[in-house]
Design a protein around this nucleic acid. Structure first.
Lengths: 145, 145
DNA sequence: AGAAAAACCTATTGAAATAGTAGGAATTCA
DNA sequence: TGAATTCCTACTATTTCAATAGGTTTTTCT
């Protein structure tokens, strides 16, 4: 019952791109250095974000990545869902909408679906812009973020 | 990012004990049959709940388990924590209170700790008594719970 | 006393998920 | 052409998960 490194790193990468956004493409090498994560591992993660349309990329020399939208438009939930998949803690309801066979008689069903809802509501309530604000409120740029 | 079967089964076992509570000891065999889970696997799970003081047990013929407290006194969170351990989704703060090395500069820290808090608040807000009510509101006793 | 029924204990196992590593192909720019 | 980059996908080691398994101990009933 943990968020994987992929999910956490995805948030860090997106935040890094948001904080260092100049309109130019930012090479993964720079992000990896700032974040202390290998380029190779980040390639996989940023690849998922890119294929989801969250980023624009440019190959070759001077290539890299940049955001396609304003930071306010990325909820943390949407970022996590790219790498973690569905964020539900229980398989009461599958992604295809199919319910657990016990659902008719399951007294815990509403507890679990309620739990999934508070999580979903929370992660949707935060955006990249909120995290940027957090970063700017602290002395983030004196450190390696 | 899923609650394990141990956690989910623990809730079902506790609810089963609460719904079938007569003051007598209930053998695991009965619970296992109702829940469709093997006795052997449930032994491990109920053992954890028992060692945590959530149950009274009696060995030997006519032995079994029963609750030690009133259903209102068991939060679902407390049950889940027995089998799942700490319910935090991220290792920002360890169980021993030690913080992640990045915590000083981590802009996502308050996001993650806030997420853990909404989860903790939610799971503490539900008790076994609430689930019993859910069970009784539906036609639970016509089915095998 | 003896048999049966239950809790109790802990090792083992197979499968899946996690957290990367690795090697190279394709693209772009200078 | 060469360097820097993205892009793609296979592989691997470790850990976690979900049980299974094989017993030992305790208690009650006959």
């Amino acid at each position: 019952m943990k968020v994987s490194t992929k999910g956490r790193y995805a948030v860090r990468v997106m935040l890094d791109l948001a904080l260092h956004n100049t309109g130019e493409y930012i090479p993964l090498k720079e992000i990896a250095a700032r974040q202390g994560i290998t380029v190779k591992y980040l390639e996989q993660i940023i690849g998922m974000l890119n294929r989801a349309g969250f980023l624009q990329s440019l190959r070759g020399n001077n290539g890299g990545y940049r955001l396609t939208k304003a930071p306010e438009e990325y909820t943390i939930g949407s970022i996590l869902r790219i790498t973690e998949g569905d964020l539900r803690l229980t398989p009461c309801i599958e992604e295809n909408g199919q319910e657990c066979e016990r659902s008719e008689t399951c007294a815990a069903m509403s507890f679990w679906t309620g739990l999934d809802k508070v999580i979903a509501d929370y992660v949707e309530s935060y955006t990249l812009a909120d995290l940027m604000k957090q970063a700017e409120d602290t002395n983030w740029d004196y450190y390696v973020i």
